[in-house]
C-alpha cells in the first residue's frame, strides 16, 4: 500500500458569495465523497485551503495571494492509501472539484528510508 495525494485545482471565483445553505450543501458534497473513500478504508487525511496566502520568492520579495500569478489555485488536498496510482485516480471520481470544472492531480507521496 502506498500513499497518494490528491490536489484539488480550481479556478477561484472571488465574486461568488454563497449563502449559509449553499455552504452547507457544498460541505455535504465534499463530506459524502470523502466519507465514501473512508468507507473503503483508504482515507488518511485531508485539508481544505483558504484564499489567504503569501508567496516568498527567491530574491526575498513577498507577493500577496497564492493566485496572483495563476488562473487556478490548489483548494485543498486529500491523502489516500491504495495499491496503485490508478486506484487512487479511480477514487478521485466523484470529487466535487471535478463537477465544478476543476481538476484533481494525483501524486505519489515519497517515503525516504533513514
Amino acid at each position: 500500500m502506498k500513499d497518494f495525494m490528491m490536489l484539488f485545482h480550481s479556478v477561484p471565483n472571488m465574486e461568488y458569495q454563497p449563502t449559509p445553505e449553499e455552504i452547507k450543501a457544498e460541505i455535504d458534497l465534499w463530506q459524502d465523497w470523502i466519507g465514501g473513500i473512508a468507507a473503503q478504508g483508504k482515507f488518511k487525511s485531508t485539508n481544505a485551503l483558504g484564499y489567504q496566502g503569501k508567496t516568498m520568492h527567491s530574491d526575498g520579495t513577498i507577493t500577496d495571494g497564492p493566485y496572483a500569478e495563476m488562473k487556478e489555485i490548489v483548494g485543498g488536498y486529500l491523502i489516500c492509501t491504495t495499491e496503485t496510482i490508478e486506484e487512487a485516480l479511480e477514487l478521485s471520481k466523484g470529487c466535487p472539484a471535478l463537477a465544478q470544472g476543476g481538476k484533481v492531480e494525483v501524486r505519489d507521496v515519497m517515503i525516504f528510508e533513514d
Binding site: D28, Q31, D32, I34, G35, A38, A39, G41, F43, T46
Partner: peptide, 11 residues
Amino acid sequence: RLYNKLLQLEY
C-alpha cells in the same frame, strides 16, 4: 454526516 466523520477518524 456523522458517519462520514467517524470513518475519517477510524475505519
